[in-house]
């Protein structure tokens, strides 16, 4: 069973490593639509997958946050990738699996996953 002593050990380890962390100015932001429409369409597992993948890969320059309804409820779950000096990319009908691929292809390797973008899905 998880104990508070274990949490204390985590605290000590994290405090020791605190100097290594730096706030990167050229942060990439991933926004997940978490209004009623997004949540109903499956945004929660998408958010969880994004957070997990970003942490697993130690992507310190990437932040995952939630936003409200973007206004295209029929395409939810919707996520937006906002990178400095780049055009915003909107992905639609995202699943946890697609979210992992977006992190790998787009965030890590810089290749937009065109087939998941709103431009190729919306007619």
């Amino acid at each position: 069973m998880k104990s508070l002593a274990e949490l204390k050990a985590i605290k000590e380890k994290t405090q020791a490593a605190v100097g290594m962390r730096q706030d990167n100015e050229d942060k990439i932001r991933i926004l997940v639509g978490m209004a009623t429409c997004g949540i109903a369409a499956g945004a929660r597992p998408v958010l969880a997958a994004l957070v997990e993948e970003v942490e697993k890969r130690n992507l310190h320059n990437v932040s995952v946050s939630q936003t409200g309804c973007i206004g295209v409820c029929q395409y939810e779950p919707v996520i937006e990738v906002v990178a400095p000096n780049e055009e915003k990319v909107t992905y639609v009908k995202v699943t946890a699996e697609k979210a992992v691929r977006i992190i790998n292809d787009h965030i890590v390797n810089g290749n937009v996953v065109t087939e998941y973008t709103i431009g190729s899905v919306a007619k």
Binding site: E6, K8, K13, T14, Q15
Partner: peptide, 16 residues
């Protein structure tokens, strides 16, 4: 109280 300033969204804390 235990974390004394270490944020809750630290990956190891979230895993706990």
């Amino acid at each position: 109280q235990i974390l004394e300033g270490v944020p809750l969204d630290t990956p190891d804390v979230m895993a706990w």
